[in-house]
Design a protein around this nucleic acid. Structure first.
Lengths: 353, 353
DNA sequence: TTGATTAGTTCAATCGATTGAATTTTTTTC
DNA sequence: GAAAAAAATTCAATCGATTGAACTAATCAA
């Protein structure tokens, strides 16, 4: 099939793929001399290099990436595995990873897992198959078995995790201090005179949520508030879950006076219910989200949230990969890069007292 | 640098890259026999094929994608150029393109232009350099010169455009009927007894916005409303522009009684201003957006908008590419696939009359 | 038994660039 | 002007899989 196409192109003389051979012929050199000239080899004269550069332009030469990748044993491709690209957080991380890697001669191959373990395994398999030079990933929420990630390590392919990481894998990790974020939020809410704080969290097998829960519990104790287990509620953190859980919280005899949601989506769902029921925010119920998604500022009141500085996370993840490539001899081990995050206090939790 | 790493791996015997050679040695065959067995060549016996399959599992063999790509002259990579991935629309298109192409053995390389012409040119250059088997793109808003896209065509690389297309390029295009969408919206607003409709549009050199404007004008005439040129306002369609333009519209002596924004973001900005100024929506000002971004339903009132069925756009774009690959002999020409879009009437434009 | 078929493999070239060693060319030195 | 040193280039193997042609067995017909 493809051959027919190639032949067809040849016949029509559309196919003009220039190779170093063409340049060599044109200049009366050998392909190897041309290759060395292109790679700025010290043993090639300036005159020749200049001539080759000229010919490159003349013949509109583009090096065949595949052949050089094959020969050099590296593809200059980096796999990027993310749960979803449709949040501002991931979009921003991706944008920054892409920018930095592009600048360093790498291209990014994207794979979305849609939070599915199966899709994640497939993606890893494919990326390894394509011979990527490294993989940067944020683990799907479904994933509890890290066998496939271990396979990446075994193959000697650099692996960097961000946001959703896993200590046991003992690889580079870039993220924020989730434990501390919970502490910040609780501290802030306590200062706003809240005393019964509910926490809508994600799946507790995920490390980041585990940490947020831990931080939440410890902070309550620090401020001498009772830890009520039934105020810590697991969810998928989507809008619907936020609505559902908020509604159920409101039905309790003893309502909480503040809600800390581990995502802006959940916070948004909660806020919608509060507004619909005419409950005053933040007076009757203070609300804090997580992630600083753009929509957190479009509601009235604007939603207080944690700014994760997604751009920095992307940058650091890309840099961690480049560092790994530069120093392959370094032993791969758990290397956590914890970035600052900041609490953005907005009207959903700002009681004027 | 990389060689050192390779040597290092060899020394540590981590490097276990099995090649067809290894399989050949194990089974007492030649590499070519193994290759043919793997590719289900008719002249290889079933027995041998079975043995090879067994060995593949035994040795944990993964074919070297680079070498086969080099030999076959195709990379199984498809370039995907989008302005931004941070809207629901593009995220959804990408998700569906990826799903379909993956299923057909292709991998997707993503490039974001951030609406920049320069970045777009770079992306095209890189993708061609990587020898992608095709490019699926949505043109950046800055782009007015299509030279680089022509280069794709010249190289014989299949090109499919979606959403932001260009007739002159004469390639496959997948999109919706923008002209008709404007007509739908005007018709709806007229039926809600609106008579002075403003239109916040995008950069008018972009074909889709040109079409929406044309549809808007024609619809006004059809309904015998005057076309007031100063009610058609160009913008970058972001929230801020929506706010700014809405504010200026409100300052006019003769206010419009409806606004049709060519993006949900612009509609959102407009709505914020309206709510802040206490103007009743839709009674005093009806509002319609475009794109059905998820946030269009989180405000009160919910924003009426156009559902572009982004999933279908993605699917069709991927299929158009596959079709092109399957029939390379077909002459490349303008081939428009226009999908249905639907007006979602919500409270921002639903006057109870 | 010989010649013709067919099945099953192997051979050898190829894709295009890279690279260390070898060779040729040029320059320097005595 | 010959020998030595330095510079520039060529040689040839390589990366790993693919593929048409060639070759060897085994099977069949006459």
């Amino acid at each position: 099939m493809f051959n027919r196409w190639n032949k067809c192109r040849k016949k029509l003389e559309i196919k003009k793929k220039t190779t170093i051979k063409d340049i060599a012929t044109l200049l009366g050199l050998t392909p190897s001399a041309v290759s060395k000239a292109l790679n700025d080899h010290p043993r090639i004269s300036q005159k020749t290099k200049a001539a080759v550069q000229e010919a490159v332009i003349q013949l509109n030469y583009q090096p065949n990436y595949l052949s050089s990748a094959l020969r050099k044993g590296k593809s200059n491709l980096v796999g990027l595995i993310v749960p979803r690209i449709n949040t501002h957080f991931y979009a921003s991380v991706i944008e920054n990873i892409e920018a930095i890697l592009n600048k360093n001669g790498y291209n990014v191959i994207m794979a979305q897992t849609n939070e599915s373990y199966k899709k994640e395994c497939q993606s890893i398999y494919t990326l390894l198959n394509i011979q990527v030079d490294g993989i940067i990933a944020s683990i799907a929420s479904e994933t509890v078995d890290f066998e496939f990630y271990r396979k990446i390590k075994q193959k000697g392919v650099p692996l960097v995790l961000f946001d959703r990481g896993e200590n046991d894998l003992e690889v580079d990790y870039v993220g924020i201090d989730d434990y501390n974020c919970s502490q910040l939020i609780v501290e802030h809410l306590v200062q706003q005179n809240c005393s019964r704080i509910a926490h809508i969290t994600g799946f507790s097998h995920t490390r980041i949520f585990k940490n947020r829960i831990r931080g939440f519990r410890d902070a309550l104790q620090k401020w001498e508030l009772p830890v009520e287990e039934d105020l810590i509620i697991e969810s998928n953190l989507q809008i619907e879950d936020g609505r559902r859980i908020m509604a159920s919280l409101l039905n309790r005899k003893q309502r909480p006076d503040a809600v800390y949601a581990a995502s802006d989506n959940a916070a948004l769902g909660a806020l919608q219910v509060l507004l619909e029921k005419g409950i005053k925010v933040p007076e009757e119920m203070a609300l804090v989200g997580f992630g600083n998604e753009p929509f957190s500022t479009i509601m009235k009141p604007e939603i207080s949230t944690i700014n994760q500085f997604s751009a920095d996370i992307g940058k650091e993840a890309a840099l961690a990969f480049l560092e790994r490539i530069k120093h392959p001899e370094k032993k791969v081990m758990l290397n956590k890069i914890i970035l600052d995050a900041a609490l953005l206090v907005r009207n959903s939790s700002k009681r004027g007292n």
